Amino acid sequence: MAVFTSVTLDEVNAWLEKNYRVGTASELKGISSGIENSNFFLTTQMGGTQREFVLTLFERLSKEQLPYYLELMEHLSKKGIKVPAPLRNNAHQIVGDLNGKPATIVTKLSGKSFLNPSVRHCELVGDALAKMHLAGLDFQLSQANLRSIDWWKSTVPLVIPHLNSAQDQLIQSELVAQINFFNSAEYQSLPSGPSHCDLFRDNVLFDNVSGQDELGGFFDFYFAGNDKWLFDLAVTINDWCIDLATGEIDQARYAGMIEKYQAVRSFEPAEINSWNMMLRAAALRFWVSRLWDYHLPREAKMLTPHDPTHFERILISRREVSSYLPNNSAKHATK
């Protein structure tokens, strides 16, 4: 969510006046976190009422691709899942154009992110993620996860020139392993549906309610796609339930998230058998993307690429462990 395309308050007000009934923009502030789109906190005034939104200008996604993400958010919001709700414009369109880019406004969730989550935070996320998966079952649109294995296969050759020999061997051997896994009958049998695919700690908010943190909501759905639900959970586990210095699983947070997820949706036998490979797939996906962002960057205001070695460590850690026991008794990993 860096700022690639600048927008002024006057430009936003002209756009709002023409397309929306949300009043006049009084404040526009660029959001520095993230690396894909240009995002701004937008405050409007209308009849003495102040409202807060998030304005997004899309830098990679086309206008034709965007209805999947935005209508998924609209669908989940209507199902009671705590996600930002897109505003449709006066022509009932869910996406418009601003400064030459596709643009939309969504409601702003309340709360704050916790970059050092507790067991309770992980439990809340596990519960809500399972509910989100089930709520998406009757979503009518379908779009593959654009950062899945086909993207890995095309991107790995681009980053290999920037790797040392050990990294080269690791990334190529894991890619071959994942290609074989994705082609297996067991993988094909895994339950799937709309998935967030990027549910990191900074994409979740928590509200303090009566002295206790409650889920404020999930946001930033612009890597979402129809994928295996197990992959979505593995991405989440690999960010929320680890020791940041080593990439190794934190057992208390891991067990809390897994148990609360399975209290809503139990794993099928094929999911239990595929769990270790899916944790590795989730690690590879973000190692590849961080290598790409770091070594082949785009210019943007406030853009700071993430350290690729973080997910290299996570992938190495997942490859070293033989079993993570993804069931309700998941209390330990076996080396």
Rank of each mutant, 00 (worst) to 15 (best):
Asn89Ile: 04
Asn90Ser: 12
Asn90Pro: 02
Ala91Gly: 00
His92Glu: 10
His92Arg: 11
His92Asn: 14
Ile94Asp: 01
Ile94Gln: 04
Ile94Val: 15
Ile94Thr: 11
Val95Trp: 03
Val95Thr: 04
Val95His: 00
Val95Ile: 08
Gly96Gln: 03
Asp97His: 07
Asp97Trp: 02
Leu98Met: 06
Leu98Arg: 06
Leu98Phe: 00
Leu98Ala: 06
Asn99Ile: 09
Asn99Lys: 13
Asn99Ala: 10
Gly100Trp: 00
Pro102Gly: 08
Pro102Val: 14
Ala103Arg: 15
Ala103Trp: 06
Thr104Val: 10
Thr104Tyr: 00
Thr104Asp: 00
Ile105Pro: 00
Val106Cys: 05
Thr107Tyr: 03
Thr107Phe: 00
Thr107His: 05
Lys108Glu: 10
Leu109His: 04
Leu109Thr: 02
Leu109Arg: 02
Ser110Arg: 08
Ser110Tyr: 01
Gly111Thr: 12
Gly111Cys: 04
Gly111Ala: 11
Gly111Ser: 09
Gly111Asp: 09
Gly111Tyr: 13
Ser113Val: 01
Phe114Ile: 08
Phe114Gly: 03
Asn116Gln: 14
Asn116Tyr: 14
Pro117Leu: 08
Pro117Cys: 09
Ser118Ala: 09
Ser118Gln: 10
Ser118Val: 03
Ser118Tyr: 12
Arg120Leu: 15
Arg120Trp: 11
His121Thr: 12
His121Gln: 15
His121Cys: 08
Glu123Ile: 08
Val125Trp: 00
Val125Ile: 13
Val125Pro: 07
Gly126Ser: 12
Asp127Met: 04
Asp127His: 11
Ala128Phe: 03
Ala128Ser: 15
Leu129Asn: 05
Leu129Lys: 12
Ala130Gln: 07
Ala130Gly: 13
Ala130Thr: 11
Ala130His: 07
Lys131Tyr: 00
Lys131Pro: 01
Lys131Cys: 13
His133Met: 01
His133Asn: 13
Leu134Ser: 14
Gly136Ser: 04
Leu137Ile: 05
Asp138Lys: 14
Asp138Ala: 09
Asp138Arg: 13
Asp138Trp: 02
Phe139Pro: 04
Phe139Cys: 09
Gln140Lys: 06
Gln140Asp: 02
Gln140His: 04
Ser142Tyr: 05
Gln143Val: 02
Gln143Pro: 02
Gln143His: 05
Gln143Lys: 07
Gln143Thr: 04
Ala144Ile: 01
Arg147Trp: 14
Ser148Gln: 05
Asp150Leu: 13
Asp150Tyr: 07
Asp150Gln: 14
Asp150Trp: 02
Trp151Asp: 14
Trp151Tyr: 15
Trp152Ala: 14
Lys153Arg: 15
Lys153Asp: 11
Ser154Asn: 07
Thr155Asp: 07
Thr155Asn: 11
Val156Tyr: 12
Val156Asp: 14
Val156Lys: 11
Pro157Gln: 07
Pro157Lys: 08
Pro157Cys: 04
Pro157Glu: 03
Val159Lys: 06
Val159Thr: 13
Ile160Asn: 09
Pro161Cys: 01
Pro161Gln: 01
Pro161Asp: 03
His162Cys: 12
Leu163Ala: 07
